[in-house]
Design a protein around this nucleic acid. Structure first.
Lengths: 180, 180, 180, 180
DNA sequence: TATGAATGAGCTTTCATTCAT
DNA sequence: TATGAATGAAAGCTCATTCAT
């Protein structure tokens, strides 16, 4: 069995993502991680502290999954289309739970600036990756906006329909952009 | 002074939107509405029940504000651009709190199907309005995705930057669409 | 439709007996009686007041049912045996709810002396009827004790077994008593 | 001072028995046990859970008191008579509060099957003890019925009169039974 | 007479956190 | 390092009753 700290973090990976932050109590976490309460507070200053570590781990995990999924792509266009397929793959895997960062952003009071900062930072990193791939600033923003919207709306409607439509849109955008 | 039911609903309009659902307790609502606890439960079966009434009122309010804001538009293009300006207006007015429907969707457990249904229904109504204005199905979905994404990302980054970029994008899309 | 007061009383006849006193709220009573809350308090000073009226009505009802059931008896022995059969009949009719007087006695605080008095009074009336029929004081007490015990234990075990056994016992007691 | 769990249980031994279940709030229990509310719920899943533990403790206590009281008896007859004297002793000690099991049975909704089961089980254990002592099945049931009735009616009338009469009855029954 | 609106006091339960060992 | 015990504060909700109309 792995170490307590790791078990707590792994448990939060499941619970925070599936149930959200406020709906997941410390008690449930320590029970499912099989760790004592005092042990929890030995490793994490507070629940908010765990939340931050959770975000870091979740981001690493999500990015590496995405990179894995798109690694075979030979062209930029193919890579982007695959990244939208990745959303479909994740929706199926995680039952349309959407994005942990956006979900938790919504339920955390605005005065918890540290948590909101880390959410923003990770999301900005994602956006940056679009801008790195596409030198055209407007086009990068355009695709990023569609990407975020696909995560959101597929969670909302519990359907991949808009992701499929977005793939057509993206295809069009990239082809007309290359033709210039 | 207005009637208790109205005061409760009005208070929820402020608190649910600004603080979210879980962070807003019954106690705070009744205190700020200046109503007794039993009186609250005379008018609303439960907190979830109030949430549903809140959604209905919020949707009516938001739509009427939007229609007001865009009413002067003479062309479809102008109307859409104004609807993005409306998001900027609301961000300023409501301090980048984004969309109550999406915010609360994120923090409500999935098994509260009645609440999730009303969120989906209202959001679907919004999406429908795009499809009514634009016969081109893909184009309507495209603009709708950008619109939702603008609400979301401007809340996330506390900035109207992506809304401004979207206006350029939308302008382009509509002009090339009309030229066909 | 009957008058409000009557409807309230009739509703309490069902609810107090089936659910007990504390588990039956005023709200449920007025709803099922289709009467306004203020109307309730017009007719009854308090819930306790209704309880007393309920006891009076319940007692009258129960006694008249018992007399009906045993009216055909030609001998004293037959009458007593029929009164035990009556308990079986009531258990079937009322799903082993036992005696309202004893049930409610158990859940009313001891300092509500008025309610406890009326319970005692009605129960004493029942006991007196045994003593009127049987001049032998000990024998009357004996049968009365068995009778109460049958009500109680058949509710407890949800079974008429001990009533059946009691009929044999009573038969024996009365026959040996007459032979003296 | 003893441990919280023990203090809670001991307090419930007094309050549940004296006031009943519904009339005894968690607040009163924790105050008289000098324990915090959260501490209560650390040790007991719910009030119903405490009720079950209370029943187990009460039953052990009651049986051991009964055995103590009757331990000196040299004949079966003496033992039974002493067990009726025990009821008088308990009435005086506990101010005619009767039987906790029957009292609480009356005020608990029928759908709480777990609680009703434990009541029935303990009561069946008591009844079994009569059948173990007296091989004659009818006689055992007879004495058991009288015994339960004595507990009940002495609470109802706040008097030991019927217990005293029962002692005469029991004496007679046992002597005529032995003479056969 | 009849009523819908309103209430204070109470209920059981859960929360994230700390402390003594 | 690790832990079981304990907590103050707050959660959502229900009670029998009264009052203004």
């Amino acid at each position: 069995m792995s170490k307590p700290r790791e078990r707590i973090l792994n448990t939060s990976m499941i619970l925070f993502h599936q149930q959200g932050y406020n709906s997941t109590g410390i008690n449930q976490i320590i029970e499912e991680a099989d760790v004592s309460k005092a042990s929890f507070y030995q490793h994490f200053k507070s629940k908010d502290d765990l939340c931050i570590e959770f975000f870091n781990k979740r981001f690493k995990y999500w990015v590496s999954e995405l990179e894995n999924f798109t690694s075979g792509a030979k062209t930029l266009e193919e890579k982007f289309l695959k990244s939208f397929d990745f959303l479909i793959y994740m929706n199926q895997k995680e039952d349309f739970r959407g994005c942990s960062f956006l979900n938790i952003m919504s339920e955390i009071p605005v005065d918890k600036i540290e948590i909101h900062k880390i959410i923003r930072d990770h999301k900005a990193t994602l956006r940056d990756s679009f801008h790195k791939d596409l030198k055209n600033d407007i086009l990068a923003a355009h695709l990023y906006l569609l990407f975020e919207s696909c995560i959101l709306t597929s969670q909302l409607y519990r359907s991949n329909e808009l992701i499929e439509k977005s793939k057509l849109i993206v295809q069009n955008l990239l082809q007309s952009s290359l033709s210039h």
